[in-house]
Design a protein around this nucleic acid. Sequence first.
DNA 1: TCCATGTGCTACGATATTAATAGCGCTAGC
DNA 2: GCTAGCGCTATTAATATCGTAGCACATGGA
Lengths: 93, 93
Amino acid sequence: MALLDLLGRRWCLGVIWQVSEHGPLSFRALEARCGGVSPSVLNTRLKELREANLIWLGKDGYEATEQCLELFQLIEPMRDWSHAWAEMLPELE
Amino acid sequence: MALLDLLGRRWCLGVIWQVSEHGPLSFRALEARCGGVSPSVLNTRLKELREANLIWLGKDGYEATEQCLELFQLIEPMRDWSHAWAEMLPELE
DNA sequence: TCCATGTGCTACGATATTAATAGCGCTAGC
DNA sequence: GCTAGCGCTATTAATATCGTAGCACATGGA
């Protein structure tokens, strides 16, 4: 449940996704990719994720740790699921 | 990204988890299981999840739709991951 | 040296989200 | 009628998030 609490914070999943998929990303790059996060919130998430040993700040920007990549392997299939989900949603209305 | 936005709301993942794993749950039962959600927020999440066709209100309480169960199959392995994660975290300090 | 640029990050006030508590209307059983 | 449980709402306070501006530092020219 502690995991769900951590992941259930705004932009947290998005940061994990971006960092895991698009390699090292600078603070500003993350800011842009996440589509308008405020830097204060982004910084808070980065701090939390660093304390959780999911990301770390290398010389080329923020990178995913091995643990984060493992987690990403788990949430990555959700992309396929979300496509099917997005397609069937309008049919119900 | 729309999925991450929906799932990245507080208690949303928790509700999906509880409903998918513990079968039909009443409003009050969910309230108790999620460990202190306020009913207003819970109701908002339930409304959102119903519009997203992830849960529905049967005669025995809230149940997961087939789509939700598929999604749950994807996030369920995260339990194992979280155990390893919880064990290695304190070692870093 | 001075300026410009980019970095990670912070401060602050405004806005939106969540929490906490109480209670409504309804139904079923006694 | 009374009690209890249900899904759900209202209201106010606490909290999180946003948006904007800016800091301190490093790098790289002119």
